[in-house]
Design a protein around this nucleic acid. Structure first.
Lengths: 149, 149
DNA sequence: CGAACTCCTTTGAACTCTCAACTAACAATA
DNA sequence: TATTGTTAGTTGAGAGTTCAAAGGAGTTCG
């Protein structure tokens, strides 16, 4: 038997959808407008930039950026076309592909970062009190936990 | 000058992205799998079903479901192909188009609803305490407020 | 009235995402 | 070594989204 949402839950749910969508869209729009890339690409570049050697296996990169293998594969193909990422075979396990951030890619990321961070603040942190930020963190942690199994 | 995110903010931000994405994906997957429609379509059907006469102007429908006019237009075109929605011209203001939920559309929505609500509970409400649900509601309200201007 | 402006909606192109199918490489087993 | 199974990654097709452009309808104001 389905337990329907009561009025409060209904409201919260729609509030949640609206708010998260607003944030996502604001982010995507800002990056697209000022850096010419979607948020997915940005996260991929960030992932690589934080890895030793600015390189990572596709596998691991997909996990970190939590996008599907397929999505990552398509995205990295595009990033390669732009000269922001290069791919090479893993020597030991030859199934593996390794993505590496190029200098041009690093530069593009550095260019994009300030505007992006500003937008993150405007969209999410500025509207919230420090307490709320803490609460949000815990809420998201709890949600993630149940999803990971 | 860009004020960068400190470690806590960084963590919260990534937590937020991960959690919201998980919820969105779980939702979309469930609806696609069990009802053969993306979440956007579901929201459109819900919007219409709650309106008097099961009808609404495209304009208003876009606002309620917070999707762009273009997106809505494309989506309603598809929904019309499936026979779930029909379109007609507004008589007074002939710029306006009115979307109406058909019986078949209402039926499809009724079929989809229970599984969807179950997924909403599993994805978002079950992991949270009642306090956290309240907090989340307030957080989302605050975020929405700054975005609406 | 007519010009200019705004509003409502659709359209097409370019792009991204998802899903399922597929190749290739490693691993385990007999 | 052959068989089967698992893991890594790519690919193509189909579907949804975005953006900019366009068209038709109302509105304003000289």
């Amino acid at each position: 038997m389905t337990r329907w949402l009561d009025d409060d839950e209904q409201r919260t749910w729609r509030n949640f959808l609206a708010a998260t969508q607003l944030v996502q869209e604001a982010l995507d729009r800002q990056l697209q407008r000022e850096a010419g890339m979607p948020h997915t690409y940005y996260m991929i570049l960030v992932g690589l930039s934080e890895s030793p050697g600015r390189s990572m296996r596709m596998n691991e990169l997909a996990r970190r950026t939590q996008c599907s293998q397929s999505r990552l594969s398509h995205a990295v193909a595009r990033l390669e076309e732009r000269g922001w990422v290069s791919r090479s075979r893993h020597t030991a396990d030859r199934r593996g592909n390794i993505a590496t951030l190029t200098d041009a890619g690093f530069h593009a990321l550095a260019e994009a970062a300030p505007g992006h961070v500003d937008e993150v603040r405007r969209s999410l942190f500025d509207p919230l009190t420090p307490d709320q930020v803490r609460q949000l963190d815990e809420i998201c942690t709890a949600v993630r936990k149940t999803h990971e199994s």
